[in-house]
Simulated scan of single mutants.
Amino acid sequence: MALNAISNYAANVAHRNLQKSDMDATSSLAKLSSGSRVVSAKDDAASMAIGSRLNSQVQGLRQASVNAGQGVSMLQVADGAMARINDVLVRMKTLSVQAGSGQLSNTERGMLNTEYQLLLAEVNRIAASTEFNGNQLVNGSLTTGGASVGTGGGFAVADGVSSITGHGLTTASSDNYTLSYSSGNATFTLTDGSNSYTGAISSSAMDASGNMITGAGVKLLPTGTNTGDLVLSLNTAFQSATTVAPSASAGGLQFAGASSATFSFKVGTGTDVTKDVISVSIDGISGANLGINGTDITTVSTADAASDALGNAIDVLNNARASIGAYQNRLQFAADNIASAVENTEAARSNLLDLDIASEMTTFTSKQILVQAGVAMLAQANQMPQDLLKLFQ
């Protein structure tokens, strides 16, 4: 190759190779600093796409594992309530057997009945107060609703009352509940003639304009000795006491449905109800659900009847507890399976995206040497034209 002063071919070659080595070293440094083999899509487009999908699946599975764990915790709360009610029922059974014996007088049976009734009230209280994140667990769930809530009219969907959900109540063969509303204090009252439930619209359920917040409800608490509770579900059409639309009362409410509450837990990343959702049904264990409301032990005959009812109630309760235990085991197995799926999916994602530090460090060291050599050779190439000056001496 001829020597010339205009073009320096050797310097150009050295510069090109130096640029490539510098880019490779920079790319290797980016991977080492991030810990990822695929820093940008150009590094491996297919792995980037597949790895991103796997990562989203892993994150979804992690949340599904939390859901399953929360489901187990919720069932443990329900099982704890059932265990305490079982203890109460055993004591009530003991009292009924004692009251059915002939050595006692009616006066003594009255004394036993005092404890019996208080224990019955405690059964209902535990059933009504057992909640998890605001959801009642062991008090059943009965609903009335439709185009008009109640045959008596007055509280229709258009007026803002979409449905009434009752807990701790039994279904009736005929319409037997009456709902009334007092605009003076924005209070609802539901009665079946002997038991009453009252509840007012809370200010927290209203927005700044005085309209009911979407999804808000009015909880009707018992008055007197009754220990159930109701929830009145209202929509946004229902407004404050001064602008309330419904008429004064609506009679003839009839509750229908099952005496159990159903909860669905998302244990997968999809939407298939057969694969990604586990539904749990928890039987109600209030006095009404167990068939012991209204029992007493004031006489031998009523004590014997209460003893039979309590025997059946204990069987019903144990069946409910067995169902809870089965659901707990299922959710636990689901959580274990999710943990295995997370582990294997994470391994697959890691193979695609995670960096082999040892291998990449070797590559980086090689590129560093090439960069240093390139700098040195470019310096030498830039010195070559100076050799031409010796020809002029």
Rank of each mutant, 00 (worst) to 15 (best):
L355C: 07
S180T: 13
S163Q: 14
R62E: 12
V58E: 09
D43W: 06
A381Y: 01
S36T: 11
Y181I: 03
T130P: 05
L119P: 01
G224N: 04
V72I: 14
E131A: 05
A339C: 09
Q19N: 14
A78S: 03
V371E: 00
T262W: 06
S148V: 11
T236S: 15
L18H: 06
T171E: 10
A172R: 11
E115N: 01
S286N: 01
S301C: 02
Q59N: 15
G51V: 03
I164D: 01
E360H: 10
D192K: 06
S73W: 00
V316R: 12
I50C: 03
V138Y: 04
A158F: 00
V123A: 04
G251R: 09
L118R: 11
S183F: 00
V38P: 02
N17Q: 13
M361D: 07
K266D: 08
S173F: 00
D308V: 11
L61H: 07
N139W: 05
T165A: 09
S203L: 04
M384I: 15
D44R: 06
Q19K: 13
V316C: 00
F392H: 11
V231M: 12
G210F: 10
A250V: 14
D44E: 08
D22W: 11
G199M: 06
A305H: 04
N293S: 15
M111Y: 13
G35C: 08
Q117I: 00
F263G: 10
K219G: 09
A41W: 00
D79Q: 12
L353A: 05
V375Y: 05
S247M: 09
D24I: 07
Y197H: 06
R53L: 12
Y9W: 10
S101D: 14
K20S: 14
G224H: 03
S7Q: 12
R91M: 02
S260Q: 15
R125Q: 15
G252A: 10
V77C: 03
Q368I: 01
A248F: 09
V123L: 05
A68F: 02
G69D: 07
S105D: 10
G210L: 08
T225D: 14
A49R: 13
L378H: 00
G51L: 07
S279A: 14
T262Y: 01
T295Y: 12
V277M: 08
G160L: 10
E108N: 11
T302V: 09
I314L: 13
I278A: 04
S301T: 15
S196T: 15
S350M: 00
S73T: 11
Q368K: 10
T271S: 15
A5Y: 12
I292A: 09
A156M: 03
G215D: 08
T214P: 05
L331V: 04
L119A: 04
E108L: 08
I285E: 00
A306W: 04
L32C: 09
D79E: 15
L18D: 02
G153A: 02
T269K: 05
Q380R: 14
Q136T: 13
K367S: 10
I297T: 06
L391S: 12
G374Y: 01
T362W: 07
R53H: 10
A339R: 10
R109I: 07
T107R: 13
A347Q: 14
D336P: 10
T170K: 13
I369C: 06
D315S: 14
V157F: 03
D296C: 05
S209V: 01
T236N: 12
G146A: 06
A335V: 07
S7E: 12
A250N: 09
